[in-house]
Write a protein that binds this DNA or RNA. Structure first.
Lengths: 301, 301
DNA sequence: TCCTATCATTAGCTCAGCTTATCACAATCT
DNA sequence: AGATTGTGATAAGCTGAGCTAATGATAGGA
């Protein structure tokens, strides 16, 4: 593919995104004819049309779709060269897009922000909260640099860096204070309040209770740990929460909090990023900083 | 990395390969100053030197090394666009670089060539014989399109396509004809002739005999199955060969050939290629053709 | 000390690729 | 139907990125 230019791929990607020559050209800060010509040039190289010019609609042809895929791959690799520049310029500085899952963010984010802005003042953190699935695809598409999630994620394209392990605790109505702590089996008989689909914490809790995938049961869903604890306080059932949430969520609620006997349910919190990211070394440094404050805050709980 | 061009990456890659401005320029079919300028342009983008201009020697700086890595990745993806063109132009045609391991090539290659040149006359096969390790790296560097090896190879970047399974048979001196066939354990007491390091067939044979990695023992090495069989004929020991080699290798030698009782040792022969190769669909077609003739020839043995 | 190999610099030219202006076409409205 | 509007293609002209050829600068080696 000699004669191909990155510019052409960028224009094509914009066209695919906007499905409109004029708007794509605007997004690329060029005139519409300039974009048309480059697309035509690309089509010449492929000896085939890449877009269907419909009446009021532009659509990619099948070959166009495949080119789009490859283009994104190439453009992502090129963007990573920017990170290579940053990596070669001493301590980490500039924008860092960090994603966190919702069952970690409220409790741990303040600690992370404080630590990083102290140790790496040049760093410009840009935060995003979403479930693991969505963070992973943002990472893979290059919309995110790094994410804090529960390990393992087992994506071969991502590097995992473990931060710390944390136990789950049982939250029951205040009236249950002092009653014996149920084990995984007896838990199955109680009404368990859980986060809605998509949260990894939901699956971890379910797996501790050894519920099968399919069997229907007494479940209720809440959209945040905070809601769940309030529901428990109102006597609607019991729930599990991660240890780091205890201080924040149970202070004002009428609930009783108990640790499980061994083997305790737990999760591993860690960082993930694209294996191909040239900032890998720097991200490990950041990981080390977060790990240090994470362990300190876990000890002080 | 706006302003970056593929041309610059190509020039840089050539410079890294030749370690010499003049020769790299020649390889790119441009003048030496043109190349110097583009390299300088690149260095401007990185705010750092990428090559050390030594007295009589050009060397990459550490940053240069990392850029080289990324460049190769990007350029490989760009080359794969060529394959996308081919994939979109009907039946597979043009150059196809096929690698085969030495313990398959002599016996199966004629069949493959005949079948493919009959079914895909437009195909221009370019063959290479090497051990698995080397074929894999050629695939990953884009120096090879597809390879026939023993599965599994378990490289996440490669797709595996299984062709057929094939048993190993025992080759003993003709004097042993009629003697009971040894099992894996009794084999350990005999002098086993094997291929030299690097051949996967050697490891498969060793693993059948359940030899540990380290334990020293009565072994001799030959550089081809043909040599091994001749050595067996001369009474120097026994060996295993794959079934497809029986007809070719044992016809003229004074040896006795026996199948093992169940569970028979065997290997799976298959094709591998870069997962990212746009010709994937076409390669599967080729795989289907080879599989068909492979099974037919296995049955007729 | 001079020579040779090697990369950098300079001057000048050419064409790829941009902009603006305009055309061609089809869908929708009146 | 005829007018209008939204859209991409085409045309003409300009500008600068990037090439070549010629020359300069520098460091090893004879």
């Amino acid at each position: 593919m000699i004669g191909l230019t990155l510019k052409q791929l960028r224009y094509f990607e914009a066209l695919a995104r906007h499905q409109h020559f004029g708007r794509a050209a605007e997004a690329c800060a060029i005139s519409q004819p300039a974009l048309s010509l480059q697309i035509k040039e690309l089509e010449g190289m492929f000896h085939a049309p890449l877009v269907e010019r419909g009446a009021r609609q532009v659509r990619l042809t099948p070959i166009g779709e495949r080119l789009l895929e490859k283009s994104r791959q190439i453009l992502l690799a090129v963007e990573e060269l920017d990170d290579l520049v940053r990596a070669s310029q001493g301590p980490l500085a500039g924008r860092l897009r960090l994603g966190i899952i919702p069952t970690v963010a409220p409790y741990f984010l303040p600690t992370i922000i404080a630590a990083l802005s102290h140790r790496l003042p040049e760093l410009d953190l840009e935060l995003r909260e979403a479930v693991t699935r969505s963070l992973i695809s943002d990472l893979q598409e290059g919309n995110l640099d790094v994410a804090v999630v529960a390990l393992p994620v087992s994506e071969p394209s991502l590097t995992e860096f473990s931060l710390f392990e944390e136990d789950f605790v049982l939250v029951r109505p205040a009236a249950d204070t002092g009653k014996p702590v149920p084990n995984a089996t007896t838990l199955q008989a109680m009404r368990l309040l859980l986060l809605e689909e998509g949260h990894c914490f939901r699956d971890q809790a379910l797996s501790f209770c050894q519920f099968g995938e399919s069997q229907p049961r007494q479940l209720m869903e809440g959209s945040s740990l905070s809601t769940l604890v309030q529901m428990v306080g109102a006597g609607m059932g019991v729930t599990l929460i991660p240890e780091m949430a205890v201080g924040f969520e149970t202070r004002s609620a009428q609930v009783s909090v108990d640790r499980f006997p061994h083997p305790r349910p737990s999760r591993t919190i860690g960082m993930i990023w694209r294996r191909s990211n040239p900032l890998s070394d720097q991200l490990m440094q950041i990981g080390a900083i977060i790990r240090a404050v994470g362990q300190r805050s876990a000890e002080s709980d």
